[in-house]
Every structure is written in C-alpha cells, then in structure tokens.
C-alpha cells in the first residue's frame, strides 16, 4: 500500500507541475483521495477532436503500478470514437493485457490522446448498444478483443 501511495504522490506532483500539452489534473477530483483522479484532456489541434474537452477518471488499486489503473471517460462529453463506448469504457490494450508498471498516468493520457488523434471517422464501436447494456461497471472485467490497430 505504502509504495502505491508514494508512487502516486510522485506522479501527481510531476503531472501537476509539468503536464504535457492538452493534459491537466482536474482540480475538482483529485484532492479527495489519492486512489481516484480526474484528468482533463483537450482534443489535439488539427484532429477531429480539436476544441473538444474530455474528462478521464483513473481509479488505482492498492497493487498499482503492478495492476493497471481503471480508466474511463466521464462527464457529458464522451468522445465519439470507434474504441470508446458511450458509457466511457475504452478499448485500449495498455489498460489491460499490455499494461506495464513502467507506464504512468501521463503515458496513459498521451496514448489516449494519440488514439483519438489518429481517428478518421467519428463513430461508436459497432457493438456499442449491446456492450453498454451488458458490461460490468469496471472496464477491466471486460474481455477485450484487440483486433484493430488502425486507430
């Protein structure tokens, strides 16, 4: 537990002090508890999401960074993207089976921005309505099928 807190504290400090472009630790969420963060994301300029703002929620287990964080889009603007379900769940392999403890909140945010940026057509995943009706609240419980590397 202690090592998880120490690392999260370091990450929070670094990300607050020197965040990459388009990423901000949201002032409304994070101060309550270290194990749950809200991060504001901006759609990258020159992409389909330019000018849009999103919120990501991170939940960390006591085994972080050995276990991946639980990451979902929250709020009113869930990006319209073939890998993002309307309930905010994201199909991204680094969030489950390709997770590594060398990754961080910052690298996850940058991966998500890059995933959004390479999108060529704004649309929901084809199985969106079925998935949203049947899935667990925790996206990590979903058996994701990573078959499309183009976006």
């Amino acid at each position: 537990m202690a090592s998880m807190e120490k690392r999260l504290q370091k990450e929070l400090q670094a990300l607050t002090k020197d965040p990459p472009k388009g990423v901000r630790v949201s002032p409304d969420g994070t101060c309550r508890t270290l194990s749950e963060w809200i991060v504001d994301l901006d759609g990258a300029p020159g992409t389909l999401y330019e000018g849009e703002h999103f919120q990501l929620q991170f939940k960390f287990s006591s085994r972080y960074p050995f276990d991946s964080p639980q990451v979902t889009f929250i709020g009113t603007n869930i990006p319209l993207h073939p890998h993002v379900y309307s309930n905010g769940h994201i199909c991204l392999s680094i969030l489950t089976e390709d997770w590594s403890p060398a990754l961080s909140v910052q690298s996850v945010c940058l991966s998500i921005i890059s995933m959004l940026s390479s999108c060529t057509e704004k649309k929901r995943p084809p199985d969106n309505s079925f998935y949203v009706k049947t899935c667990s609240k925790n996206p990590k419980k979903t058996r994701w099928w990573y078959h499309d590397d183009s976006v």
Partner: peptide, 11 residues
C-alpha cells in the same frame, strides 16, 4: 550511469 531511477517505484 544510465537510468538512475527504478521506473517501477519511480524512486
């Protein structure tokens, strides 16, 4: 010399 940090605990 290279990488004086443990990327797992970031210390």
């Amino acid at each position: 010399k290279k990488g004086k940090e443990c990327v797992i605990c970031m210390c």
